[in-house]
C-alpha cells in the first residue's frame, strides 16, 4: 500500500481545512501537516475535483446522484468521499489501490466525527468571516486527538 497524502475540504468554496502529506515513500513519519506550502496544491486539487464532480453530476441519469469516486493519472489515484454536509475527503495513493472508499468512510465516521464533531471545543465551521466563507479560509484542524488518530490509522498504510 502506498498512500501519498490526505486532504479535507470544507463546504465554503474549497477551503482546505486539513492536509497531511507523506513526502518520502515508505516513511510514515516524513512529510508535512497543514503546511503553508501546500496551499497552491490544495487549490489545484480542489479545482480538479470540483470540475470533474460537476461533469459527473451533469452526466448522471434521471433523478439519481452521480457522485465522483476516483481520479487517476498514470502516476497516482485520488479517492474522494463527498459528504452530504459538503465536506470532501481526498486521499492520494498509488495506482495499485483500486478502491479506498472504506478507508475514507472510516476517516469520516470514526475519526472526524468522533474527534472533531463530537468535541464541543473544536469548531466544525472553520470559516469565521465573510471572506473566509468565500474560499479564503485559512483555519485548519489542529485538534490533537484528530491528528493522532489520523497518524495511527493512515501511518501503517504509507508503506
Amino acid at each position: 500500500m502506498a498512500i501519498y497524502s490526505f486532504w479535507i475540504f470544507d463546504r465554503h468554496l474549497g477551503n482546505c481545512i486539513f492536509d497531511r502529506e507523506w513526502t518520502l515513500k515508505s516513511n510514515q513519519s516524513s512529510g508535512t501537516t497543514n503546511s503553508k506550502l501546500n496551499e497552491d496544491t490544495a487549490k489545484l486539487l480542489y479545482g480538479m475535483v470540483f470540475s470533474l464532480r460537476s461533469i459527473s453530476q451533469k452526466l448522471s441519469g434521471e433523478g439519481s446522484h452521480n457522485e465522483i469516486r476516483t481520479i487517476s493519472t498514470g502516476k497516482y489515484r485520488a479517492h474522494i468521499l463527498c459528504t452530504a454536509s459538503g465536506l470532501w475527503f481526498v486521499l492520494l495513493s498509488d495506482l495499485k489501490q483500486e478502491d479506498l472508499s472504506h478507508v475514507l468512510r472510516y476517516l469520516y465516521s470514526e475519526i472526524y466525527v468522533k474527534t472533531v464533531v463530537h468535541n464541543w471545543f473544536s469548531p466544525v465551521d472553520f470559516a469565521e468571516s465573510d471572506s473566509e466563507k468565500r474560499g479564503q479560509g485559512f483555519r485548519k484542524i489542529r485538534n490533537r486527538n484528530f491528528l493522532a488518530s489520523v497518524e495511527r490509522f493512515l501511518g501503517p498504510m504509507v508503506n
Binding site: M48, L52, I55, S56, L59, S60, G61, S64, H65, N66, E67, I68, R69, T70, I71, S72, T73, G74, K75
Partner: peptide
C-alpha cells in the same frame, strides 16, 4: 507505452467511468 504519464487518464463515479 502511454504518452500520457502524469496527466488525467481515468475518472470513476457512482454510475460511470471516463
Amino acid at each position: 507505452p502511454s504518452w500520457n504519464q502524469s496527466g488525467l487518464k481515468h475518472v470513476t463515479t457512482d454510475q460511470l467511468s471516463m
